[in-house]
Design a protein around this nucleic acid. Sequence first.
DNA 1: CTGTTAGCGCCTTCAA
DNA 2: TTGAAGGCGCTAACAG
Lengths: 336, 336
Amino acid sequence: MPSIKKVAEIAGVSVGTVSHVITGSVNVSEPLRLKVQAAIRELNYHPNHVARSLKTSRTRTLGIIVPDMTISFFPQIIRGAETAARKRGYSIIAANSDDDGERQKELLSLMRSQCVEGILLVIAAAPTPQSQITRIMDADIPMVCLDRIPDRVSVDSVSVEDVDAAQMGVSHLIERGFRRIAIVTGPMSLRNERRRAQGYRQALEAAGIAVDESLIWHGTLHLDEVAALCRERLCNPKGRADAVFCTNGHNALGVLRGFRDCGLETPRDIGFVTFDELTVDDLFTPSITTIVQPAYEIGCRAGEILLDRIEGVATQEGSITVRLPATLKVRASSQR
Amino acid sequence: MPSIKKVAEIAGVSVGTVSHVITGSVNVSEPLRLKVQAAIRELNYHPNHVARSLKTSRTRTLGIIVPDMTISFFPQIIRGAETAARKRGYSIIAANSDDDGERQKELLSLMRSQCVEGILLVIAAAPTPQSQITRIMDADIPMVCLDRIPDRVSVDSVSVEDVDAAQMGVSHLIERGFRRIAIVTGPMSLRNERRRAQGYRQALEAAGIAVDESLIWHGTLHLDEVAALCRERLCNPKGRADAVFCTNGHNALGVLRGFRDCGLETPRDIGFVTFDELTVDDLFTPSITTIVQPAYEIGCRAGEILLDRIEGVATQEGSITVRLPATLKVRASSQR
DNA sequence: CTGTTAGCGCCTTCAA
DNA sequence: TTGAAGGCGCTAACAG
């Protein structure tokens, strides 16, 4: 790997001059500039980011931690953040926490060591100790939380308008005539799950339907368990729910599996609405009504806020809170 | 950000000693070690990877470039690679090329600047100039290509056994009684697409079915175009194909959209088999028969090979070629 | 076992 | 406009 010294030597100038033409910070005369550029090409020289970072204490790197990037919601977020970052000359390091608090802690620590200039975080479902987050912020590393917002910590955050979104989905089911609407949630340790459950309650109340606690099913994020949960509560036709509302797309696959296992067809036997596109919803037969989150935009906005903080553009004292609206895609599964 | 110097000061020792306890390369007496560790905790000190990398010329970082990590095949690969890397103390920088040659070139250059120690590459569909790859290898940066293997360049590679896999899928359709089997490919600039097309031909020939060139449909990777292609060739019942074989999961969504637009149902009106799980295949109604690639394992193996090269474990002179078998998941779409 | 020190490659004053 | 030189934080000799 040729260094700036080598380039200077070949070009017959000093390293300072080479540095000047690379950074463009200082004017260099035409002839010298050309000689330097020629040398750079000849050597296939690539400035060493590591050395530059050490000198300038700017890595131009962002970190993003998501639970699992094989879940389609997260890559969309990452791509949004990547785009925002790239526009401003930053790159991104993405990593998976597997919803594990310990792993998340390791990653946070690793990213600090790697000197990322800011961190985008979708917290793990395992309760995240407040300290993990405050430690980062105490070290003056800007952080923006996405999708899942931690409790009791004041931190910039971007997510969907969870309550409204859930309410919209449930109200839609009610409008279509469903009355015994069950809800399948993820872990209640997550605030967005709680808020979605709240939206569910509000929708029922607004329609004058009493909330039946036996129709509130708290799931994990494991498909098998969610499927089993649904089987157990749906197999018996007596007093069965006439529709299910699911608070996240991952669990939705478990719910659908549960339907299938009970021989239930939607919407013939049971109505269904879920958060998140199931990748190919409109190809399902029958297709599934979904609450679509603007995942890409969530990533984008979060990235922008983070960059604004890093570059001192965002001067706001308190934490910035962005809540984006979701969209209801009405399809067959909610028609009776 | 406290530095090693600060730690040394607090602990009342020299920076060398601190370094020794951190790296563990040199023995340090119990009492000093404890003092250092206490200081580290007190300061919440994180060793600066950047400085370490500069000194050691080892970043312990790998780069991976995929076309688009919102396509479910790629995150699986990335996670495989991430796991392999983590096991050996490396981290990963992942980026998307959007199948754009220019973008890919930029990323390769960026990663060089970032001093990644090796690169995993799924080449862009836009023909990749050989030079992009040889430049990296000439700079002694190990590289492993995944899934899509470049032509005319000798480089380590890991992918599925494309010919066999395609042949398996098409033979399966033949066994089930389909005879006019169309194939929808991706860009023929990609070797894996060509090899899959070859598997298609071989399967037909092995069954004594003449290849009908009018049933070979070369698609792009744009769903709308693929859907239009299928609509055009399938809407007319006269002489229509009785089954479609699709060479990649992304395009499969386009094909299914085409079916729907023509009012065709699978398998009632047309048989269907495709490469790659459609995320939720067994929930489709009817479910789709797929050729499943061991995506996670492809990423893992590629990561391991790359690390072996980096650490000088892999001494093999020529390029390493790993071809993994695919699995056929028989479901409803191929039953007549 | 512990401390001292020379760079790693680069940027950035500062002087010429 | 150009060049010389210090130092970012760390590791790895080397000396004590």
